[in-house]
Simulated scan of single mutants.
Amino acid sequence: MAITQIYLNLPVSDLEVSKKVYTAMGGTINPDFTGDTSAQVVFADAIVVQLMTRETFATFTKRSTSDGPIEVISALAAGSREEVDRLADAALAAGGTEPREAQDIGWLYNRAVDDPDGHSWELLAYHPAGGQG
């Protein structure tokens, strides 16, 4: 059986603020899987982020959800450098933070955005053949 989708489940401190950041980065809320303690954000048919209050998230694991070292940096590819800037700026206006300056290495352009809980996302545009992003 082949993998058909990726679901990222993230604990968040303030569900409403997190929903604003993730929709600003281009996601849409799926009301069928959204409630008072959890929200499903769809970026594409195969890319889904489930935001959960820390209390709800804790019901799915025995591990601590306390702040600790970063374990993953997720990335979303956009179609152009301009789209990366638009999405990053919108996420920042919605409550995200930018932990570092944009990177432009010719074939790859990216900006980092951390959500209010410190989950790190790279918004990127690239041309693997070496073209400009």
Rank of each mutant, 00 (worst) to 15 (best):
T59A: 08
I3M: 07
T53I: 04
F60M: 13
D117K: 02
G68R: 06
V84A: 08
V12I: 06
Y7K: 08
P31T: 09
Q50A: 07
Q5F: 06
A75E: 10
V21A: 05
A91M: 07
I47A: 15
L108A: 11
A102R: 03
K62V: 12
L123Q: 04
V72P: 03
G133F: 12
I3S: 03
E122D: 15
P116N: 09
L92D: 10
P128C: 05
R54I: 04
M1F: 03
T53L: 04
R63Q: 15
T37V: 11
F57W: 15
S13L: 08
V113C: 02
E16S: 13
D117Q: 08
V41I: 14
M1I: 07
S120E: 13
E71P: 07
W107G: 11
L8W: 04
P99A: 05
D89L: 01
Y7P: 02
K20R: 15
S13G: 15
P116W: 06
L15R: 01
G118Y: 03
F57C: 12
G133I: 10
M52L: 14
G133S: 15
L10A: 04
R54A: 07
G68E: 10
N30F: 00
E55H: 07
T28N: 11
A78D: 14
D67K: 08
F43K: 00
Q132E: 15
S13P: 02
Q5V: 08
H119R: 01
A91G: 11
A44E: 12
F33R: 00
F43G: 02
A46G: 11
S18D: 12
N9L: 07
R63M: 14
V12H: 00
L10M: 08
R81A: 13
R100V: 12
A129L: 13
P128D: 12
H127P: 05
F33H: 05
V48M: 04
A78N: 12
M1P: 12
R81I: 09
A112T: 13
D36L: 09
A44S: 15
A44P: 06
G68I: 05
V42D: 13
Q103R: 12
I73R: 10
T23V: 06
E16I: 07
I3V: 11
V42Q: 09
L92I: 14
E101Y: 01
S18C: 12
P31C: 06
K62Y: 08
T53A: 05
Q103A: 13
H119E: 06
P99T: 07
G106T: 07
A75G: 12
A90M: 10
L92H: 05
L123V: 10
V72Y: 06
A39M: 01
V113P: 00
L51Q: 00
T65K: 01
P128V: 09
T59V: 09
I29A: 00
T23W: 00
T28P: 02
